[in-house]
Amino acid sequence: MNSFSSPLIQNETDPRIVSARRWQLLVVLIAVSLALTITSIKSRGNPNLVQSLILNVFSPFQWTFSSGTRSIGGWWRGYANLVGVKKENEKLSNRVRQLQSEVNKLREAEIKLWRLQRLMGFNVEKHIEAVPAEVIGREADNWSRMILLNRGTEDGVEKSMAVITSEGLLGRVAQASDNKAKVLLITDWRSSVDSLVQRTRARGIVVGKSSRAGEMRYIPLNADVRVGDKVLSSGLGGVFPKGLMVGMVIKVTKERNGLFQKATVIPFVDAGEVEEALVVLRYGG
């Protein structure tokens, strides 16, 4: 130690003081973290000021970043798709003609169904009022399966609202701040959706496993469920509208002495690829 150094410099280099300062700071930061955690648990996950601040600081850049990667991805996909596009075009033209005739038939069937439903006193249409949102971020850890949307309470988005895409069900709003919302995906281990198999109307609950696939549980043992069956939301529980596509059965497991069977379900919506989604504000007749 230099004998000419001032007491202030000595303090800064004295290992005992440095060590004491380290532990003091560590204790303070741990206390702050603990306080934040307790506050978060007490407020049932509603975003606090610090959380909103972090999201607000990052979201403009994130939006730019996401748009950038999206446009690069889009450009690359566009280039790759150019190969063989002429053949594809011819195929699609034929398919459009086929589908056109099917649409006409279905329209007729729809009108007939509408008339019958009216006769039987059912609600004729299930209106869905939704707000479109862009995906601006994804989870940072391996514990949650979530996405961050650029819509929040200012746009009418509230906790527990269903989030859908054109392919089907994506998840539900877990947290909503002024202009952002965190969506708990149906693949998250905390998610469960009351569902039914489209072909046989067999009931079950699709739970997330925090991986690509989910699991449909509590299907009665005698219910007919096969690989390739489509699974829809049942509408029970009041969170998700009835009839939304949840996924497709890829494996059925029957337990020897169990009361139920299980099915592995691959969601129709690939959360990794989703860029836009609809938040369902209201639904029903």
Binding site: V18, R21, R22, L25, L26, L29, V32, S33, L34, A35, L36, T37, I38, T39, S40, I41, G45, P47, N48, V50, Q51, I54, L55, F58, G137, R138, E139, A140, D141, W143, S144, M146, L148, A174, Q175, K182, L184, D188, R190
Partner: peptide, 26 residues
């Protein structure tokens, strides 16, 4: 020490902000 601890604290908070675990846990 000081820079490391404060940075780590901030990194944890960012991680929490983009997660559904209670804010402050990470």
């Amino acid at each position: 020490d000081r820079e490391a601890l404060i940075s780590v604290f901030i990194l944890g908070l960012i991680n929490d902000a983009y997660s559904l675990v209670p804010f402050g846990l990470t």
